[in-house]
């Protein structure tokens, strides 16, 4: 399966961004091939509004079935659940750390947005 991590960096050692909608990019990791691709999200960083919605569309277009981030606002959450993408939160420092948490089953799935909308 493909998992999208919000990040500001370019590889697995990059920091995990706690923001979903306004993360600079997503690192989409494929658990089968153990390879990853990067999805740019910078057009959203300063979006007036609807960053979470657009970010969810970006993640869905990349074929991700799960998202790992710090926070997820209500609009992004609605979009992701519509696309059957599961959302997990992590306080890991790096993408690699979040990935091992995910693989160890240590992350809990979000069942509702965990931050207020707007600028999450």
């Amino acid at each position: 399966m493909k998992i999208a991590f919000s990040t500001s960096g370019n590889d697995l050692n990059a920091p995990l961004d706690t923001r979903f909608g306004r993360a600079a990019k997503f690192l989409v990791y494929d658990t089968e091939t153990q390879a990853f691709t990067l999805v740019d999200n910078t057009q959203n960083m300063s979006a007036a509004q609807g960053a979470g919605i657009q970010a969810a569309q970006n993640v869905a277009a990349a074929g991700a079935q799960a998202v790992v981030s710090g926070h997820c606002g209500p609009k992004a959450f609605r979009m992701l659940s519509t696309a059957n993408i599961k959302v997990y939160t992590s306080n890991a420092a790096t993408v690699a750390e979040a990935l091992s948490q995910f693989q160890a089953g240590a992350l809990t799935e979000l069942t509702a947005a965990n931050v207020d909308g707007h600028w999450a």
Partner: peptide, 12 residues
Amino acid sequence: ENSGKLVATVRQ
């Protein structure tokens, strides 16, 4: 309108 976006620009 949209001072929120200008605020985001300044911070960035």
